[in-house]
């Protein structure tokens, strides 16, 4: 009897111990993975992280790439340019996608971490300034846009439109488009405090499509029939946001889409970037709605 009980108890203790052991084994593995991950170029899987603007392009490119190379794996994650760059600085990813250039502070931080960011232009994007299709305003100058976004202009009547309050929409501060638009349009100023902040481009399109007084900015690839893109004048006359104007460089709100790597790309990262820059890859760029690198 007693030995039976003892056996039973032993079994229980053993099972508990086993569970604890398994739990700790798991933890050990995670740590090990992190420390052994230093030599990334040798592995046949890479992670790309960053700008939501570049995300659809990277997804399309990686799908085709993996279809052609079934034993290589590429993971693509969004989150915003800042997120991707931060991940590159921390050594978590092989490629950071960005819709803006790295800030001075980010480069300093990268160098402090022993990371040497190298930039590759993979495509061009145009930023369309969009309004509701029922809005009679079809063009704005940089000065007017600045006034609308810094808070000095609050009614469409002030820029020649209807007497209607302007609902100004921006992205959140993790968006590369947010920083890019701020540098190009606001220069030294800040976004007005009462601007609506939307967590995603889709939400901007949604709000503008249903709000006659709204204005916002989105990547050209997100432009659809529910909203209207404005003609923009940076001082050289009004230019419409069309493929031709963005590719010729006439449209003032065009920017490069970038991949950042640690040092010159190598291994799978290099293979992938070469694929993106090949003619097949650049065809995908056009398909997704961006513009090929010249």
């Amino acid at each position: 009897m007693i030995s039976n009980k003892l056996l039973k108890n032993m079994t229980i203790y053993f099972v508990v111990l086993l569970i604890i052991a398994i739990a700790f084994t798991g933890i050990g593995c995670v740590d090990k993975e992190n420390t052994e991950d230093t030599d990334i170029s040798q592995t046949s899987s890479i992670t790309i992280k960053g700008s939501d603007t570049v995300l659809p392009l990277s997804q399309a490119e990686s799908e085709d790439f993996m279809y052609a190379n079934p034993y290589k794996s590429i993971t693509v994650i969004g989150g915003g340019s800042g997120v991707g760059i931060a991940a590159l600085i921390d050594g978590e990813v092989e490629i950071a996608m960005a819709s803006r250039e790295m800030k001075g502070s980010e480069i300093e931080k990268a160098q402090a971490n022993g990371i040497n960011p190298v930039e590759t232009v993979i495509a061009w994007d145009g930023i369309a300034v969009v309004v509701n299709p029922e809005n009679p305003i079809k063009q704005l100058t940089f000065e007017q846009l600045k006034g609308i976004y810094n808070g000095s202009i609050s009614n469409w009547a002030d820029v020649g439109g209807e007497n209607r309050v302007i609902t100004v929409i921006t992205r959140d501060s993790s968006s590369g488009t947010y920083e890019y638009f701020k540098e190009e349009i606001l220069v030294e100023d800040q976004y007005r405090q009462d601007a609506l902040v939307q967590p995603a481009t889709g939400a901007i399109v949604q709000e503008i499509a249903q709000n006659k007084g709204a204005i916002g900015y989105i990547g050209y690839a997100y432009l659809d029939k529910s909203i209207t893109a404005l003609e923009i004048d940076s001082g050289d006359g009004f230019v419409d946001a069309t493929t031709e104007n963005i590719m010729s460089g006439d449209y003032p709100l065009a920017r490069p889409l970038l991949y950042y790597t640690n040092g010159e790309p190598s291994g799978l990262a290099k293979e992938f970037i070469d694929y993106v820059l090949s003619s097949t890859g650049q065809d995908i760029v056009s398909d997704v709605g961006y513009f090929p690198v010249m």
Binding site: E106, A195, L196
Partner: peptide, 30 residues
């Protein structure tokens, strides 16, 4: 919108809560 809301007029204007701020900005932050 990170503006100080009036009461009760602020009910009819955009506002930003503490939780939304953390969720919106934690992605970018170094």
């Amino acid at each position: 919108s990170a503006v100080i809301p009036g009461f009760p007029s602020g009910l009819f204007a955009p506002v930003r809560t503490m939780t939304a701020t953390i969720a919106l900005e934690m992605g970018e932050v170094p």
